[in-house]
């Protein structure tokens, strides 16, 4: 076991992917000599060359569009979008082309493209650097949408994503890039949880807390705080946002009867709405309270001096947990 930051765990996972398959490529802005603005690709161009770790022109539609072409030619591109707010020039290529190619070709074509996107706020950034656009992609059939919450998952999930023959939108919790944990980099993927499965991170009995990405750590901390008040939270890291691991969610909520969904993204039309609807349908007779959502307010991401008010935090998670007992 090695202690790695989440950023370094991704870097090690990408290195493995490049080593294991000569068809794997990395492409994006500043991913080469600079190693990416978050250093996720640090050292990879030096070790694998400019043909496999490619500094692209500054054009996101071009990054994804050419990745599609490379994939059609048998390559497995891993695209880096530098920040969440910069993915939108590529939105057409992702939604209209990448997501639908298999369907249009009646299964004859696969596009094994991974699009890595650092997402979420909490780093004091300027506009367009703190967005949580995952629902836009999870709403698009044909895309697998995942998010890692800790270094071990980062290491395994990035490799599983590269191995996926479906396109994967891979959301990286940027404010957790420097979180450290033990990672077994020698371990293969055989024992790893499949990419489309949720993980029960903290077992509990009173309230199910569903979350992903940057809020995983927050919710784990909330479970510790709630335990001091005698409340047992079951925290589930969803990991896969499309498809959702409904079975794991339903099993937990049928047990606890209460559920809080936590994400940084705007609540309106977010993943929490979809999850709440599914739970209502599947767990109607077990529910003791409505499914509550904790997320951003329905406003654009505010100036960073206000982000601590805008983003969910430990207190807001606990507040929602309390409210589930008010029904």
């Amino acid at each position: 076991m090695t202690t790695l930051t989440l950023s370094k765990a991704l870097n090690e996972g990408l290195r493995k992917a490049l080593e294991n398959d000569p068809k794997v490529l990395i492409m994006g802005e500043d991913v080469g000599k600079l190693g990416g603005v978050f250093r996720v690709t640090d050292g990879l161009q030096k070790d694998f060359g400019e043909a496999r770790v490619v500094d692209t022109p500054l054009a996101e539609s071009g990054i994804v569009g050419t990745a599609i072409g490379l994939a059609l030619r048998g390559y497995r591109p891993i695209c880096e979008i530098q920040f969440d707010g910069f993915v939108f020039p590529a939105f057409d290529q992702i939604v209209c082309q990448l997501a639908k190619m298999r369907y249009r070709s009646l299964g004859k074509l696969s596009l094994p493209v991974v699009i890595r996107i650092p997402f979420g706020g909490g780093i004091g950034a300027v506009e367009h650097h703190s967005e949580s656009p995952e629902a836009l992609f999870a709403h698009t059939p044909g895309l697998r949408v995942v998010s890692c919450g800790d270094p071990a998952d980062a290491f395994a999930m990035i490799q599983q994503s590269v191995n996926s023959d479906d396109p994967v939108i891979f959301f990286e919790p940027k404010r957790r890039y420097w979180d450290k944990a033990e990672v077994d980099v020698a371990e293969g993927l055989a024992a790893a949880l499949p990419l489309d499965r949720a993980r029960v991170l903290v077992p509990g009995s009173d309230v199910t807390v569903l979350t992903y990405g940057p809020m995983v750590r927050t919710c784990a901390e909330a479970a510790v705080a709630a335990a001091q008040d005698g409340r047992s939270l079951e925290v589930i890291d969803l990991r896969s946002l499309a498809p959702l691991d409904t079975a794991t969610i339903v099993e937990s909520v049928r047990k606890t009867g209460r559920c809080v969904v936590v994400h940084e993204a705007v609540v309106t039309g977010g993943l929490g709405a979809e999850i709440a609807a599914r739970i209502t349908q599947e767990c109607f007779y077990q529910l003791e309270a409505p499914v509550l959502r904790v997320g951003a307010y329905t406003t654009p991401y505010p100036p960073s001096r206000l982000e601590e008010h805008y983003l969910p935090d430990l207190d807001r998670v606990l507040d929602a947990v309390d409210r589930t007992f008010g029904y």
């Binding site: 802005e29 500043d30 080469g32 600079l34 500094d55 692209t56 022109p57 500054l58």
Partner: peptide, 10 residues
């Protein structure tokens, strides 16, 4: 320079 990328990349 576009961050780390010289003009030749564009």
């Amino acid at each position: 320079w576009a961050i780390s990328e010289p003009l030749e990349r564009q």
